[in-house]
Design a protein around this nucleic acid. Sequence first.
DNA 1: ATATAGAATCTTTTT
DNA 2: GATTCTATAT
Length: 727
Amino acid sequence: MDVSRVLDPLNDAQRQAVCAPAGHIQVLAGAGSGKTRVLVHRIAWLLQAEGVSPYGILAVTFTNKAAGEMRSRIEELLGIPASGLWVGTFHGIAHRLLRAHWKEANLPQGFQILDSEDQLRSVRRVIREMGLDENHYPPKETQWYINGRKDEGQRPDHIDCNNDPHLRQKIEIYRAYEAMCQRNGVVDFAELLLRAHELWLNYPQMLQHYQQRFHHILVDEFQDTNTIQYAWLRMLAGDKGCMFAVGDDDQSIYGWRGARVENIHQFSKDYANTSIFRLEQNYRSTGNILKAANSLIENNTERMGKNLWTEDGEGEKIRVYGAYNDLDEANYIAEQILSWIEDAGLRSECALLYRSNAQSRVLEEALIKNSIPYRVYGGLRFFERQEIKDALAYLRLMNNDQDDAALERIINTPTRGIGNRTVEAVREMSRSGGMSMWQALWRLQEEKTLPARALGALSNFIDIIEELKVSTQELGLGETIEHVIHHSRLRSHYEKEKGEKGRARIENLEELVNAGRSYSVEDFDDELPEMDELSAFLSHASLEAGDNQADEWDDCVQLMTLHTAKGLEFKQVFLCGVEEDLFPHRLSADDPVRLEEERRLCYVGMTRAMQRLTLCYAEKRRLYGDDKYTRPSRFIKELPAELIEEVRMQGYVAPAMSASRGSGYKSNIKEENETGLNLGQRVMHQKFGEGIVMNYEGQGRHARVQVNFEGVGSKWLVMEYANLMLC
DNA sequence: ATATAGAATCTTTTT
DNA sequence: GATTCTATAT
């Protein structure tokens, strides 16, 4: 078999990893070192050189996008469809297993998936039903807690409350929520993974079957795996399976949602015979960008250690722009992009990356002012839109009348005279009678204890749903959706909404009909056992919330958070708002572990750049309402001065604030301001006593300082009269 | 059932 | 400061 197509495009390190003999293999793949390429070629190698059957291979990723890309690149390399091969996300594969073994997993055949929003509503409902105070048990936090436990593989019974009454109550909420999901026949995202794990735990012979089948397990972005995912992988690999894990500890930026970089270290402990390969040759960025990124990340302890290098030249220096304020920062970036375009560059080659979404606004305004087309990534995705979720809720309820979350969503949408009081009565009946809300509706009809008007409205709702069920029985998916949107009166409801928003909603609903028309179960899964079209479509909607990405054919500047940028590359990158408290974010700055994650985030951002990298900071920024004085991020100070070129806007006079100009780069970073006071400095005032300097504006004698006094609160004082003393 | 006012919140996000 | 949710009044 000629494997030159598989091996020729690889460098030595890549080839060694790809051709490594069967066993446990870990590939530490630096940014831009050909991580996906190694995975794809490894699979091709197994198939073509090792004679492994496609049925024996499982490749796991985190996002649908990554899974799709991997599959298409394999097919491109092999020149044939990669059928039989399992490539999917952790959640997608867990879902597939649960569908195939729904009985053993103790789920109804038509179980559905709760997305985070549905989950939050359900948790809130449980808390209310338990008669607990939502201020004492905030639903968001409780949801977070439940997911955290599930990610660690813990059921309520596994958790020790340590005699902490608050914790004990949280565990009870978890238990009640779980019971409710079970009654309703729904599972949340974390539950998919946990159940899939428990499924194998409870059915060893089933596990054995999968162990024999999937002898080769490949994992992408291994540093992002959480406890349950790693436990699941280890279980599947068993004694005989071979795991091929690719990851980069320096790009671990999802610790805050349960990812455990430690799994990388744990891997080589769990499998003593692990072969480790390092990919350090970078094919993306210039030498200077890599050198700067390397020196930044060296400030982290807890590293596997890695040094990126390139065969290409040094390239330009890293630009650092110290702006006067956030507007100035945005204008500077806009001007730079204009000149990039003038030099025949494309807008789509430029990316503006920021730590938090709130920063995009000022940037957008500057781009609009300069007539530069742009696209903001992130935000609501198709299947998460209100009108889409409304329509899907009708379908969900028609599909499974146990689904209380769906019923609650649409019982009065569009409004049909079922007010809060009536809904409360339905909830009460469902709770006391131990039945679903749908059953409660029928029971209330029989009992006739409610006022006639409420009963009428409820019976009207029942009729609508029953009518929809009957009249769509013979219809295809697209026609069913169309029928539902029309006869539920969702369409006319949204048509009444005025302006651009209403029109967009109608368009989305029409798009949903199209999505239904073009959807086919085969699309979704060729190996999935008997599942009706509607259930499959609904699962698809939850598992793949759709695109929120820019149209690639449009030539526009790309705006996104640093997290979103992972895995992407751009010729020119601007990191915006590289300031203390913003990046590293103030909520992470105090904890050394989280600070290191912020630094890795900066590393990820820098290594997105191919040719030109500009870091921007502002000295003054409007944040949460008022103007805050800011200081350049410590990350800037961690870059070697010789790699940096400080840039200033042409003809721009630096404000007195940053007058101190020394020889080295570092000395140019403002530590002190015109008032002679540092932010955070303790001061004493004759009348108000001791306080801390929070903010300042203006210069010289007219400067004003904001001081937060103990007991008295925060005051603005004019320096000239305040007579503040340091203490 | 809707409108309006007041309060709370303001990192990062995929499935 | 801006947005988004919640409570209250009409």
